[in-house]
Amino acid sequence: MSERYETLAARIEERFGEQVRRVPSSCSELTFETDKDHLIEVATALRNEADFGFEMLMDVCGVDYLNYGSDEWATNEATGTGFSRGVERGPVILDEADEFDARRFAVVYHLLSLQHNMRMRLRVFTGTGNPPIVKSVVDIWNGANWFEREAFDLYGILFDGHPDLRRILTDYGFIGHPFRKDFPISGNVEVHYDDEEARVVYRPVSIEPRTLVPRVIRDDNRYSADLKDANDG
């Protein structure tokens, strides 16, 4: 991490104190986490105060941490069975739960400062409530409008104060939030042309889900922090 970024990180920590927590990074990027109650205050300061000057919001995206760090095929020793590519189709999952894990949904903001030529990332977890909800930053950065609509569409995260929170990428009348980790990759419905009704209709999806390459996590000592040389990107 370069000196300029360390200075910026120190300034942010000094200015916001308890409101932000720094997240360590393996590739010299500056990430801070903040609570959703402090989001607007922190974001406004980051944009308006001369020390920070993050006048551009490059990206807003949702992240679903449901199966973070879990693999589909643990092979610590030799196995005689192999990996079955077929996947059993579960029922359609609509999140009826009252509460989520507090660290399930996050909204990630990528900020850019043109005057200081710096980037940083701000992450907010949405907490336990269902539906997940955070304050909208559209008033601070107008460019957030569509990015927040996208996060709403794909993850079902609500943005309080957004002027026009509609679906954006999915079809008119789409049900569910497709980028959630519990939403099947082949979807729930497919369209086809019905001869009798003489129109296009929806029906339950007929393709069978498959896992072509299982998700595996390997321990690799080359990447462990104590063995790696100090990396000053």
Binding site: S25, S26, C27, E29, T31, M58, D59, G69, H110, R119, R121, V213, V216, I217, R218, D220, Y223
Partner: peptide
């Protein structure tokens, strides 16, 4: 070609 490579835990933004 069967499994690919594992990428260390972390996050990166490249533009």
């Amino acid at each position: 070609f069967t499994e690919g490579y594992c990428v260390p835990e972390g996050e990166a933004y490249a533009a």
